[in-house]
Write a protein that binds this DNA or RNA. Structure first.
Length: 441
RNA sequence: GUGGCUAUGGUGUAAUGGUAACACUAGAGGUUGUGGUCCUCUCGUCUCGGGUUCGAUUCCCGAUAGCCACCCCA
């Protein structure tokens, strides 16, 4: 039996067709109320701990001169080369949505003369970052980072403290199975020599490498070390390691950092292939990894020392170190680990109204109650007492205040104890006092 | 950016070349102004566009989005 003719079908469709909905831009997402509860949990713990550690909050603009990131993050990094949202303003300024947080904070440090403040200067920030990448789970074009930076202190203990704080935040929010991956990538003194050594070594083994590694050899030699191809891993295992080729200063610094970490009883993994994707790092680099049930590990955040950056951006020679983590990633991890999401919001009191006269009374009563710090629910749009009591029940209200036609005229209110079902009529003037008494507020 | 997989009601899942099943959620009811149990009903036309077909949600192509790997990173 033939169905509706295709032509007719098209016609029907055309007639009932709704306007095309507009979607979010690729790689961006809404954060809805239920999820906000976890977001708050993460951010509030971060803020609290940063406060305890003596950090002050800084907010910098989302939009900066493109030049800042060219100089700050590094011209030849992926982030700057192909992942920035850049455009020209009406006035002709070349600007970019920030792809990371550190460059802006350093700019602010210099611009606001913070080098004249009492050192070290400790700052934390949170907010959206933008990178034009192909989206995937835990990887968005707009994502949020929470980070903190310390300026003006060279001491390896500072490195350890930053790492400790990073670790501690994850502990506090409930991500416990983390490991600290740590490495030193040297400074402008010793790194170039090591790079040369590494490329020389790989040049000799070039025919044993995969296609990707042949490309890495010229593009990003440090990345050669963490190729997952069997044959490349063999080559990598015998490759010179940067920690064996650090200059004396970098070597001592790194050694001290590790000793301080031991003192703090932070366990870490020396990871000689840890490189980081931003150009500005010197000496200590580290990441916080989380291992899931299957044993797979993923990076929640990373950071390191960047002693040259302040100068690169036009400031005085200033020691600096920082860390940042992806809020989305932390939130997703917590969800996977079964973080309890409380959907409904519990109320103390629920207002039930019947008819317009009662609605008017309820509006005023609502105001009186919230002024007395009572959590109140209502459903002004609903008509039947039944559905309103259902809402009262669902919001775990302890008391329902019912005003019907009769009560509105008499200026009284029915107080219903939701647990026992006992009801009592009181005059409007004493309702708030009676409710407070029952709630023991 | 390269390669691959997927796309069904608010959510999570079925089935099928002849107009979609189940669970949960939500809304409205179950006689007059009363909740939490129970019962009834309602919410999709199968992401969008095109093609094959008498007929497509089901096959093919394209778009879009999500996911996976690489790359990179938070």
């Amino acid at each position: 039996m033939p169905r509706v003719k295709k032509q007719d079908k098209k016609e029907i469709k055309r007639r009932r067709k709704k306007l095309t909905p507009i979607q979010t831009i690729k790689g961006m997402k809404d954060i809805l109320p239920p999820e906000q509860l976890i977001w708050n949990h993460v951010l509030e713990n971060g803020r609290k701990l940063c406060g305890d550690f003596g950090f002050g909050r800084i907010e910098t603009p989302i939009l900066e001169h493109t030049e800042l990131f060219h100089r700050g993050v590094g011209q030849i990094t992926d982030i700057v080369e192909k992942e920035m949202f850049s455009f020209e303003t009406r006035g002709g300024d070349k600007v970019s949505l920030r792809p990371e947080g550190t460059a802006g904070v350093v700019r602010a440090y210099i611009e606001n003369g913070m080098s004249k403040w009492s050192q070290p200067v400790k700052l934390y920030y949170e907010g959206p970052m933008f990178r034009y990448e192909k989206p995937q789970a835990g990887r968005y074009r707009q994502h949020h980072q929470f980070g903190f930076e310390i300026f003006g202190d060279e001491c390896p203990a500072i490195d350890a403290q930053i790492i400790y704080l990073a670790w501690k935040i994850f502990q506090k929010i409930g991500i416990k199975n983390t490991t600290i991956q740590i490495n030193s990538i040297g400074c402008s003194e010793c790194r170039p020599a090591y790079k040369k050594l590494l490329t020389d070594y790989y040049e000799m083994k070039i025919n044993k490498l995969c296609m990707d590694c042949k490309r890495r050899l010229t593009d990003n030699p440090l990345r050669l070390l963490d190729c997952k191809e069997e044959k490349c891993m063999q080559v990598a295992s015998a490759a010179p390691q940067i920690i064996d080729h650090l200059c004396e200063e970098c070597h001592d610094h790194f050694k001290n950092v590790l000793e301080f970490l031991d003192e703090l009883e932070i366990s870490y993994v020396l990871n000689s292939s840890l490189v980081r994707g931003l150009d500005y790092y010197t000496k200590t680099v580290f990441e916080v990894w989380e291992s899931n049930a299957e044993g797979a590990q993923s990076s929640l955040g990373g950071g390191g020392r960047y002693d040259d950056l302040v100068q690169i951006l036009g400031g005085e020679d200033t020691f600096a170190i920082g860390f940042s983590f992806g809020v989305e990633r932390a939130v997703e991890r917590l969800l996977q680990n079964g973080f309890h999401l409380e959907r409904k919001i519990n109320k103390d009191v629920f207002l039930v109204q019947l008819g317009n006269m009662a609605r008017k009374k309820i509006l005023k009563l609502f105001d009186n109650l919230i002024d007395n710090n009572i959590i109140v629910g209502e459903s002004l749009g609903r008509g039947s007492i039944k559905s309103q009591l259902r809402m009262a029940n669902r919001s775990n209200s302890k008391i329902a205040l019912i005003i019907g036609q009769k009560e509105a005229i008499d200026n009284t209110v029915i107080i219903r104890d939701m647990e026992s079902g006992m009801q009592e009529v009181v005059v409007m003037e004493s309702v708030v006092a009676e409710v407070k008494k029952r709630l023991k507020k």
